[in-house]
Amino acid sequence: MSAPRFAAEPGRVTRWVILGIVGIVFLVPILAMVEFSVRVGQPVKGVQTYGLQHYAAVFDPANGGAYGELFRGILNSLGICAITVLIVLVLLLPTMILVELKFPKLRRVLEFVCIIPVTIPSIVLVVGFVPVYSIVARVFGSYPWTMAFAVGIIVLPYAYRPIAANLAAIEVVTLSEASRSLGAGWGSVLWRVILPNLRRGILSSCFITIAVVLGEYTIASFLSQNTFQTALVLLQHTDPYVAVIFAVFALIFAFVLLLLIGRLGSAAPGSTGRNRRTA
């Protein structure tokens, strides 16, 4: 398509010059991290030697002690991820469906509640979490997984949006009425009609929950729990190379996760998406 002269769009050259410059500037720190992680020792007479020693060291069982804390942090983070996802699925999702079906007037209230955490900085919430958690610790003990309750709140805005968008795109009320009139009980309406239709939104919000939980630092550091991020900060002082290696891994992991969300979101709702799924 030859662009009309007065279209709002930029020309081909302009577009690629802008994207090229910004892209390169944004790639530099990533490349610097990769370069940093393959450095071996200090440069001799201005020549830096490179190798994969630091990568090998991560998986060397002899270093189990040195990186043990980090791996425990990663395990804790994964546990917190699982429980946070569970909070989204067991507390947020049913509430959203219930509000959509039975209390449409409460939709705005629910949205407002779910957006609030964006406007309260996590550092402010932390000031309040500290006393709350002194009670939580007395009830459940001071385990890393208890952090999931606090993280679940931080995640609310991100988890809410994809599900809400999905709910708005399908006719939940019509669908449930149709299946009810065909004799389905509420259980099968939920399991066989509503949830399958919400699959895409639910998946997106689970992925984004995982990405946010893995990147969470503020709450973990104030509640003195060992998670992936707090372990990275500690490790950075003793072994900056390995800390950077894990940062690169995490960035790639998050990128893939969010690329998946992008794919899920771009598969248009309606006929094309459905065809692709059954094909």
Binding site: V28, A32, M33, Q236, L251, A254
Partner: peptide
């Protein structure tokens, strides 16, 4: 879009590392 969401949300500590490796004392 994906790169933007990663960089906008996943920043934090890892962002700090990226810049230590770029413009820190030993940075590229």
């Amino acid at each position: 879009d994906s790169a933007s969401s990663v960089l906008a949300q996943f920043g934090g500590v890892m962002l700090a590392f990226a810049f230590i490796a770029t413009i820190g004392q030993q940075g590229l």
